[in-house]
């Protein structure tokens, strides 16, 4: 992910030395190219989403959003995010804590493992769960015997989402915590704090903005995830369809207004995330600068 905000740290044209300033035509060409690219690939699709959503008027837009299946898809997406994000907040925080504050064997391996969901195709992530929990899967027989339904049900969707969104919080926190070192915690302990107090009063406040940033990205991905969830969900209308899956179904049924209405919600979520992310970076840029790695 390239951050456009990085550019804002560059000095003005006037103060730049002539050696690194391109000639005027080159500058204009490059700027126009970039703007054209952004317009075609980012802005235009966004406009299309909203135009299609409102193609048959505001009434049709809200009518398709209040459709029972759509509402249940929205509810499911919110539920999945409400479970997956807190879980990954805890997992990510623990993993970052272990990696940044302690020396142990296999640390490099663990760090790589955390990045796995980024490097594996989401479809494969989903398939792994099918192989594990499916009827013919490793644990399928046992689960069936005990009447536990994981695949094609909410637990499976949550598991797949947790897997895919696992790296976000950890990846934000590891460099931040590594940079901060153990000094503050040692100070807290030397003043008599126990481990929990040191964590609660010192470690957590030190990483709170980085943590929030990670949670924000994690949430955006949890709500938008398609591939992995698609494999494990079974696409049961009103039961196991999340918003992205529902968009696809509606679209395949030529219900353009319905599909784009739901899509507009997801796009809105993306915009809100983007605004919050920018605000966080503007106000706490220094504190989360170490996390610009990916």
């Amino acid at each position: 992910m390239a951050d456009p905000e990085i550019k804002s740290y560059e000095p003005h044209h006037e103060s730049r030395s002539a050696a690194v300033t391109e000639s005027r035509p080159v500058r204009i060409t490059l700027t126009v190219l970039t703007l054209a690219f952004l317009a075609v690939f980012l802005l235009l699709p966004l406009i299309v989403v909203f135009r299609e959503a409102f193609a048959k008027g505001v009434g049709a837009y809200f009518a398709s959003l209040s459709d029972t299946d759509t509402r249940s898809a929205i509810r499911l997406t919110l539920l999945v995010a409400a479970i997956a994000v807190p879980l990954n907040l805890v997992f990510g925080l623990s993993a970052a804590w272990a990696i940044a504050k302690f020396e142990f064997k296999g640390k490099a391996f663990l760090t790589t493992l955390i990045d796995l969901p980024f490097s594996v195709s989401p479809v494969i992530s989903g398939l792994v769960y099918v192989l594990l929990f499916g009827a013919q899967g490793l644990l399928g027989g046992w689960l069936q015997a005990h009447g536990i339904q994981i695949l094609f049900a909410v637990p499976g969707i949550v598991l797949a989402t947790v897997f895919v969104t696992f790296p976000f919080v950890a990846r934000e926190l590891i460099p931040l915590m590594q940079e901060q070192g153990n000094g503050d915690e040692e100070a807290a302990l030397s003043l008599g704090a126990n481990g929990w107090q040191a964590f609660w009063y010192v470690t957590l406040p030190n990483v709170k903005w980085g943590l929030l940033y990670g949670v924000l990205l994690c949430n955006a991905r949890a709500m938008g995830e398609f591939g992995a969830v698609s494999v494990v969900s079974g696409h049961i209308r009103g039961l196991t369809n999340t918003m992205p899956l529902h968009v696809e179904i509606l679209y395949n049924e030529y219900n353009a207004v319905g599909a784009f209405a739901v899509a507009s919600l997801l796009a809105g979520l993306a915009l809100v995330t983007l605004v919050l992310k920018t605000l966080l970076e503007m106000r706490y840029g220094a504190e989360i600068a170490a996390t610009r790695g990916h």
Binding site: E186, A187, L191, G192, A193, Y201, V202, P205
Partner: peptide, 30 residues
């Protein structure tokens, strides 16, 4: 914690999100 020593760190390790008064009071607060 049990040794009750006052340790001043090389780079001070002051808690950056706490005021001066809260920093000094930390050892009593916990």
């Amino acid at each position: 914690q049990e040794r009750n020593v006052g340790f001043v760190f090389q780079h001070y390790a002051l808690f950056r999100h706490m005021t001066v008064a809260d920093n000094i009071g930390f050892g009593l607060k916990v």
